[in-house]
Design a protein around this nucleic acid. Structure first.
Lengths: 200, 200
DNA sequence: TGTACATCAGTGAACGCGCGTTCACTGATGTAC
DNA sequence: TGTACATCAGTGAACGCGCGTTCACTGATGTAC
């Protein structure tokens, strides 16, 4: 299918191609600037084609967010595993993974956390975002020496989330210009999270 | 000037009226959706009028951001004062003030921290944003029992900033739907910052 | 193996809309004398 | 006190543009027989 179909009437992989173009566009211009016509143009296809696959802009962004959450989930789990059996370290490494994912995949990250641009009740989206949240919650729980109350857990999880989400957001929006590149950001995040450079 | 001028050819307070309309529009639709024509429409004035006062969209948003930083600065100082002479408490109350300002003035907040939409080098903007940042830095410094190194200070200030900025951003973007209103948010922020409810 | 037909992906012209920008203008205000 | 003139705030028509949406269509694919 893939190569043979490329020059024919049917694209064969148009859905993937549209998503890739959309991701580029979000990276360059932001999620609210996404236009279906521009996406189609970049994918080399008629301007009405995206509607076939996604319905409208929210549908396209939702598909992007779902894909983003899948990768995010994996990145967080990999981060958590770096901490080994030490709950506190595991929590910190998950936070580091959060920040680095946001910086390295800014387009996914932006779309994922702007639910008002998405189809909130899309079943795939609901499932995959709950999945990612549960990683965070599990890590936060494991960071307590003894089982915490629901309230203690919620506060610690939300504080940890806020800390890394805030750092990522400030950096992405250009409010931390002293930390100009990825490695400066990583060094800062490690210090904030209590992870030495030689650590992990 | 004010009332007499209202029905005449010259508005008299058009600049303020435009800014007020722009603030409403940002609150309703977000900063990137701001359109000069819609602002003019809401201010009851011809669509070309805003250009006289602000040049373009970035100029208008910059004026909004400057005003926002002025109010923000005041809110942070008031917060810091609530902590009295206890540096740690003062830092925490400043954080609480940060979160509540963001929630209560979401339009200002959004514009202030999206420098890519602004005229970065506008002298007023530079001055006023440096001012607000220095409040944060002073508070962070005062939260150390003994004078910190530059690096220690930078890390603590950025961590504190990230924590409250992240909480505010997550809440504003609709990612903390369990905490539905302002008072739920305030209670959460207090717990995160180690401020009891009866405290302060 | 061949033919008919349904299905589906993608096309392209057309529509109405809101936008930013330009520009010659008009009406009020303030200043010089 | 009065007149002339410069300045400035705001007007409104016009422009070209990109957008989302609609709709009858066309071309390829897959399935039934």
């Amino acid at each position: 299918v893939s190569n043979l179909a490329k020059n024919s009437y049917h694209h064969g992989r148009l859905r993937e191609a549209l998503l890739a173009a959309a991701l580029d566009l979000v990276r360059e211009q932001g999620a609210t600037a996404l236009s279906l016509r521009e996406v189609a143009r970049r994918a080399g296809v008629s301007h009405a084609a995206p509607a076939h696959h996604f319905g409208d802009k929210a549908g396209m962004l939702t598909a992007l967010a779902v894909e983003g959450f899948r990768r995010f989930d994996e990145a967080l789990r990999t981060g958590a595993a770096r901490g080994g059996s030490d709950g506190m370290r595991s929590f910190a490494f998950t936070g580091l993974a959060y920040v680095m994912f946001a910086a390295e995949h800014r387009a996914y990250f932006e779309v994922m956390f702007r639910p008002e641009l998405l189809r909130r009740d899309d079943p795939e989206l609901v499932q995959v975002s709950i999945g990612a949240y549960s990683v965070l919650l599990d890590c936060a729980r494991a960071s307590f020496p003894t089982p915490p109350s629901d309230d203690e857990l919620a506060v610690r999880a939300t504080r940890g989330w806020s800390e890394v989400h805030g750092l990522a957001t400030l950096w992405l929006d250009g409010n931390l210009r002293q930390y100009s590149d990825l490695s400066a950001l990583e060094a800062l995040a490690r210090k904030m999270l209590g992870l030495d450079k030689e650590d992990g």
